[in-house]
C-alpha cells in the first residue's frame, strides 16, 4: 500500500449563479483591484492508503460522487499524489514533545 493525498476540488457548474463569489468580487473591487470575474471552489484534501494511483483516484472520485459534490450544481476534479510516510513526521512531533 502507498500513502496518497487525494485532492478533490468541487466547483459550481458554469452558468450556476454564485452569489458569494459575486459579493467577494465586489469587495475586491471596493479595495481598488481590477478583475474580470471571480469563481470560488471547495477543496478537500484526503489522506488515504491505496494500491496504486488509479485506486486512490477511484476512491476519491467515489467520495465526490457520493457526498462531496452535488451533481445538480457541481463539477469536480480529482488529483492524487504520494505523500511521505506518516510515521516519520509522528516521530518528529513526539521528539518535540519531550
Amino acid at each position: 500500500m502507498t500513502a496518497y493525498t487525494a485532492t478533490v476540488t468541487v466547483s459550481l457548474k458554469r452558468g450556476v449563479l454564485d452569489p458569494e463569489a459575486e459579493t467577494t468580487q465586489r469587495a475586491l473591487e471596493r479595495l481598488g483591484f481590477e478583475l474580470e470575474s471571480l469563481r470560488s471552489a471547495d477543496r478537500y484534501e484526503v489522506d488515504l492508503d491505496a494500491e496504486s494511483d488509479a485506486a486512490a483516484a477511484d476512491r476519491a472520485e467515489a467520495m465526490a460522487e457520493r457526498l462531496l459534490a452535488n451533481p445538480t450544481i457541481h463539477d469536480y476534479e480529482v488529483t492524487v499524489e504520494q505523500r511521505p510516510a506518516a510515521s516519520e513526521s509522528a516521530e518528529t512531533a513526539e521528539g518535540h514533545g519531550q
Binding site: 450556476v16 449563479l17 454564485d18 452569489p19 458569494e20 459575486e22 459579493t23 452535488n70 445538480t72 450544481i73
Partner: peptide, 17 residues
Amino acid sequence: GAESGLVPGAFTTNRSA
C-alpha cells in the same frame, strides 16, 4: 429531500447571499 433524491433539483445560496 433534494440532497437525498426524494425530489429533483438542489436548494443553494440565495441570490442575495
